[in-house]
Design a binder for these strands. Structure first.
Lengths: 334, 334
DNA sequence: TTGTACGCGTTATCAC
DNA sequence: GTGATAACGCGTACAA
């Protein structure tokens, strides 16, 4: 790997000049046209590649954005990380992806590792689980880092003092439930969630609020996860316990897919027998024609990445983008 | 962030000693017990965190593994990256994830960026598309890097000279098709793939071979992608063009899910009306009870990560793990 | 407009 | 068993 010194020698200039030409500061610091040309030529022939570690060491910050995801495999987070990656790349940043399995201890470990790498910022995808052991320690550590200048962004409800770009889950679920109510349904169940998982609980709150407004009785079940599997389990239970409700609001699209798969597999039809709606809008539900409250996850990730990448120039925190109802073929009037 | 110098001062030792204590070499280089203790104490109170860039600069290699994925959102690759991440973490490595959208030019760009970061190795998830513009340039660049000592691992068929840990797609599809044939089916269609995509073509080859062996007529369609959407499109076409085949072998699980979703949505039943099987074994098909040839993707990623992380000590290339048939509820005897 | 020289935090080589 | 010190590759005051 060619170094700046070799370039400088070949171009018969000082390393300082070579550096100025090859790394941006040529704007602030004038370099004559021909020198620029010869330096670039030299870099070309030697196949110069700047050393990111050296730059990071010098600048006290690497062009890396750290991402801590609750679960890489969940399309919900995959969408976010994708948005982050794409936007980061536009600014010459790269992303380190760390999976934390919704475990605060793992999150703390990853957080540390990311800091060791002098990342420009750290993005948390996914909310925390209240009362989960280790949450407090994580919060302490994050708060400390934030106070010392590290840019930390949370893309979901979190109990620490980071920048937050969070979708209004209460409103999303509320609006979605209102839509289902507007179809004439009253007996509407809510499926999915994890006790203490803020994002899920907010969605349940929104659902409950909408139900109460119409004097309908909320019925929440299947608080055993946010996966397809948990959707399937919950609907199995629902089927066993009597006639189906008019409609099912799912905690996210994954749950909804699980619900649909099991319903269809059991001979039920949507929306004839029951309407099913989800929250998320990632691709997973598309092929089923799932009606869902689309959350702009890619965009959300992009905003966080841009916020970190442009830290110096534009410090204002972007507002979370708005969700949008996507009506598919799994919901219909009563 | 506390530096080694500060630690050294607080512990009243030299930076050299502090370094020896805090970063491994204490094994090779003896340091007295009490000095060790005081250094550790100092590090503790000052909250010492080593600087990864500084270490990387010194060692000419960072503890980072670069991953270039064809499509982060595809669970197939998500599984691999997850396996990589988990195994890498065990060795104190971190992974930079780059998405390349199956575009050789993007792959080349990402490849460069990863090299700039002095990564210990680069893993390609996903095969190339023969004849796709830019493939040759990518190959040239990768070959060059490989020759200069960079560890590059491909987890799918690739046209460059990297280390390869690749599942035998031909055999997987062959065995899967033989299983379907053994159920008594003869009219078996193959759905999915992308022209030139090596992995897909190998699966088609395996399918064809198995069909020929039983004097059955292969019928390949839907070469328009490896997504749920393409599965759906292909099956739509299949339905329109006459009676369904006995069984459908899908290029991967995503396609299979798309096929199932559309079949079920159209009132068909599996396996009564038609058997459907996939290749992949990622979680996506589980909730549908999909019969699939399970590929050990997480393990595959882990092997690659370990191979890179242990580059110094164990240079032998691991063999690709073996696939395994998982019989679900979407396939049955004729 | 260009060059000199220093330091970023770490490890490794030498000397003690 | 411990300590100076020289790199690693780069950016940037400061001089010229």
């Amino acid at each position: 790997m060619a170094t700046l010194r070799e370039i400088a020698e070949l171009a018969s200039v000082s390393v300082a000049t070579a550096s100025r030409v090859l790394n941006g500061s040529a704007q602030h610091h004038p370099v004559s046209r021909d020198v620029q040309a010869s330096v670039r030529a030299a870099a070309q022939t030697l196949g110069y590649t700047p050393s990111a570690p050296a730059q990071a060491l010098k600048q006290q910050r690497s062009k890396i954005i750290g991402v801590i995801a609750s679960d890489i495999l969940d399309p919900y987070f995959a969408e976010m990380t994708r948005g982050i990656e794409i936007e980061a790349a536009k600014y010459g940043y790269v992303t380190i992806l760390a999976n934390a399995n919704r475990d605060p201890d793992q999150e703390r470990t990853k957080f540390r590792v990311l800091r060791e790498h002098q990342v420009s910022g750290i993005i948390f995808c996914g909310s925390d689980i209240e009362g989960s052991p280790g949450t407090a320690e994580l919060a302490r550590e994050v708060n400390l880092a934030v106070r010392s200048g590290t840019r930390v962004v949370a893309l979901a409800p979190r109990g620490f003092d980071s920048t937050k770009i969070v979708i209004d889950n209460v409103a999303a679920a509320h609006e979605l439930t209102r839509y289902v109510l507007s179809l004439g349904h009253r007996n509407i169940a809510f499926i999915g969630g994890i006790p203490g998982l803020s994002a899920a609980e907010q969605r349940i709150d929104g659902y409950r609020a909408a139900m109460f407004e119409e004097q309908a009785h909320p019925h929440v079940l299947g608080l055993s996860g946010m996966s397809q599997e948990s959707g399937k389990d919950a609907v199995t239970q629902l089927i066993a316990s009597g006639p189906l409700p008019d409609a099912i609001v799912c905690a996210n699209d994954e749950v909804a897919v699980g619900v649909l798969a099991h319903l269809w597999g059991s001979g039920y039809k949507t929306p004839d027998d029951v309407s099913v709606v989800g929250i998320g809008g990632a691709r997973s539900g598309a092929v089923f024609g799932l009606t869902t409250m689309t959350l702009p996850l890619v965009e959300l990730g992009g905003l966080a990445a841009r916020y970190i990448a442009t830290a110096g120039t534009s410090p204002e925190v972007p507002a979370a983008p708005r969700f949008e109802l996507h009506v598919g073929s799994t919901s219909a009037p009563r």
